[in-house]
């Protein structure tokens, strides 16, 4: 995953409100098709919520990894 070119980083660490998933939705809405987005979140719940939403709206979930004190989730806007 480290070789993948990231087009946009959404750093939602420390975001209680609107929170990581809302930040991701905002980012996906404003991104162009083909954009690779990484989401950084300190909330463990994001590791379930974000991939579930990405799949539900038909976008491409690429990968997820745990870093030091946060998670990194990568997706691509495909439509």
């Amino acid at each position: 995953m480290s070789e993948l070119k990231i087009d946009r980083t959404i750093d939602a660490r420390g975001s209680a409100c609107p929170g990581p998933l809302m930040e991701l939705i905002k980012g996906v809405k404003s991104a162009g098709v083909g954009t690779v987005i990484e989401l950084l979140s300190c909330e463990k719940g994001t590791t379930v919520d974000a991939p579930a939403w990405i799949k539900k709206v038909g976008q491409e979930f690429i990968d997820m990894e745990e870093k030091e004190g946060y998670w990194r989730i990568v997706m691509k806007k495909i439509k």
């Binding site: 209680a16 609107p18 939705i25």
Partner: peptide
């Protein structure tokens, strides 16, 4: 609501 609960603040 946009996310999977009733408000952004859990």
């Amino acid at each position: 609501y946009p996310i999977n609960r009733l408000h952004a603040l859990e």
